[in-house]
Amino acid sequence: MAPRYIEDSILVEAPASVIFDIVADPRQHSRIDGSDTVRGGITGPDRLTRGAEFGVDMRMFGVRYRIRNWVVEYEPDRVIAWRHFGGHRWRYTLIPRGAATTVTETFDYTRSNVLSRVVISVLGMRRRNRRSIPATLQRLKHAAEADVAAQAG
């Protein structure tokens, strides 16, 4: 049986605090979204913390919908994860490497309910996430490195 998570990592030439500022701000999620599903319409706090709730307008397969998420893991500048009603989690783990940071993005559905796992399978989410996670990480890298350059100059 295949593992119930998909993850990929990238080295970003930016401090963990700069990267965390991006992923902990739900209004920036469309800036880094490599799946092209995040549409905006963000509700919730400007800065996520453990237990925070936020909503996002989404679009997948031409269908628009709104999803509500809850932050379930939170360690400043290190780990943030959120989940929605299906139980699966999106997690970002940051590991400082001198002036750079290794960022790992994980789609973890080990805690997903049965219905959610069926939907993930039927919609081909494993395959889609295998493509979109590296794209998101590339966009996050570009955004964080641009933010560092803007702060320096």
Rank of each mutant, 00 (worst) to 15 (best):
M1P: 15
A2F: 09
R4V: 01
D8E: 14
S9F: 00
L11T: 14
E13I: 02
I19L: 06
F20K: 07
F20M: 12
R27W: 05
R27G: 15
Q28K: 12
H29R: 05
I32N: 08
G34Q: 09
G34L: 07
G34A: 04
D36M: 10
T37S: 12
V38W: 09
R39I: 02
R39N: 04
G41Q: 06
G44P: 03
P45K: 09
T49Q: 14
G51T: 02
E53D: 08
M58Q: 12
G62M: 13
Y65F: 15
R66A: 13
N69T: 04
V72F: 14
Y74S: 06
P76L: 03
D77Q: 10
R83Y: 14
G87R: 11
R89G: 02
Y92W: 14
I95P: 00
I95R: 13
G98R: 05
G98A: 10
A99C: 10
T101Q: 10
T110E: 13
R111V: 02
V114S: 15
V114L: 15
L115T: 01
V118P: 07
S121R: 14
L123C: 04
R127P: 02
R127S: 14
R130G: 11
I133Y: 13
P134Y: 07
A135D: 08
Q138K: 15
L140W: 00
H142G: 02
H142C: 02
D147K: 00
A152H: 13
G153P: 06
